[in-house]
Design a protein around this nucleic acid. Structure first.
Lengths: 211, 211
DNA sequence: CCCCGTGAGATTGTCAACCATCGACCGATT
DNA sequence: AATCGGTCGATGGTTGACAATCTCACGGGG
């Protein structure tokens, strides 16, 4: 695995878990020293974080960790996620094989195990893997957009404690898998929307279906 | 302006205009030589192109220009664009000042001039600037997603000649500006949807509203 | 007292040369 | 015919050095 990818994973994780909070500066020299690498890979990782919307970088001024507003999550990121996943789960209904279902079941199992051990990290990883298995079947561009929005959504969830208990996360994914296997499009979409929609802190109705 | 930005702009433009067609390889050494710069900025520009979905890069194998399928444009990228711009134009109704309208009018004027001269380049630039003025008011994350999807949409349009005549592009933006000024939300959204939706080559009905 | 230029320090941007690493291709061997 | 090396092309990463730019504190005018 390329070094820049390792650096990226580390930094992203440190941002999501709060080691770098919104407003914190990310200095190339410091990071490269800490991670025992040269500035090259660090620069590229920072640029990637910029694309994932976790960081804002201004020329000659450096990179700063960004915050995400409730409004943008509810009205922009979540609706986009719904667009992406509706498309992907729809295609999955048509072209997923038994093997693919097996892969999903595997992630579900890992998720269950994580929930038993109360290991948020493991649950979150399996959650991500589950969705990527579905999305990867619908083309590069869909995956591309997905990869650019999930870190923000996840980061928002973790930062503001919007994670319901681990058990219900597992349950929802079990429902998703069952719905996929049922091959019934309407059931599928219903389950998916409920999964993606998020209880709002204390403002608007539910997910911002546009118009 | 940083060198990598210049390189990025040049490469993106060359991809959109077809100098690099889908499947073409982008070799760091060659490009850096052609542009009289070192490999560093070229690498970073290539990574950015990857994030804009114009290029696919595999470790140790290099970058290749991507194609975009009708299906993904219609069912993923355009619906996402609609989500983004619905949000942005909605916010613009609330918070745009006379000065901002002035900026929009300026771009409209440039667009008209470009259409008169039959200068696609200029029309396209003003078109982009027009939308960015509106979107920039709705936050970093909205802009971030926008910047990651427009190159693909534009590139698809140019590649497959989906550009209606320049005059009608100008007309549509004049309508958009008028609708903004009217301050009527429903009119606004109607005009916007018609502007973003695209006549499909020879398949589905219209824009892929999900479900 | 406030405003503005100036300069030092910090940090990013770019360069150049170099070598390791990996993927693709080609031919020789079995 | 299939496989195993070896070579070549290109990327991944390193080092060290400088240039370019921003920030901010300092001190001289107004």
């Amino acid at each position: 695995m390329p070094r820049r990818q390792q650096v990226l994973d580390i930094l992203r994780s440190e941002i999501m878990t709060g080691r770098y909070a919104p407003g914190a500066r990310l200095i190339e020299a410091t990071i490269s020293e800490e991670l025992g690498t040269s500035r090259g890979p660090v620069r590229e990782a920072l640029r990637q974080l910029e694309h994932e919307g976790l960081v804002d970088a201004v020329p000659y001024r450096g990179a700063v960790v960004l915050d995400v507003s409730d409004e943008e999550v509810q009205e922009v990121l979540i609706p986009i996620r719904l667009t992406l996943e509706s498309f992907s789960f729809g295609k999955a209904l048509e072209l997923m094989t038994e093997d693919d279902y097996g892969e999903l079941a595997k992630q579900l199992w890992l998720m269950e195990e994580g929930a038993r051990k109360n290991d948020l990290q493991q649950v979150v990883e399996a959650d991500l893997a589950f969705h990527e298995i579905v999305i990867i079947g619908s083309g590069r561009h869909t995956m591309q957009v997905w990869r650019s929005i999930w870190p923000r959504i996840r980061s928002y969830f973790i930062r503001y404690g919007r994670f319901r208990d681990l058990e219900s996360i597992v349950d929802e994914h079990r429902e998703l898998l069952d719905a996929l296997r049922s091959r019934d499009r309407d059931t599928m979409m219903g389950v998916l929307e409920r999964h993606i929609a998020v209880p709002v802190p204390a403002s608007r109705p539910v997910v911002g279906e546009e118009r």
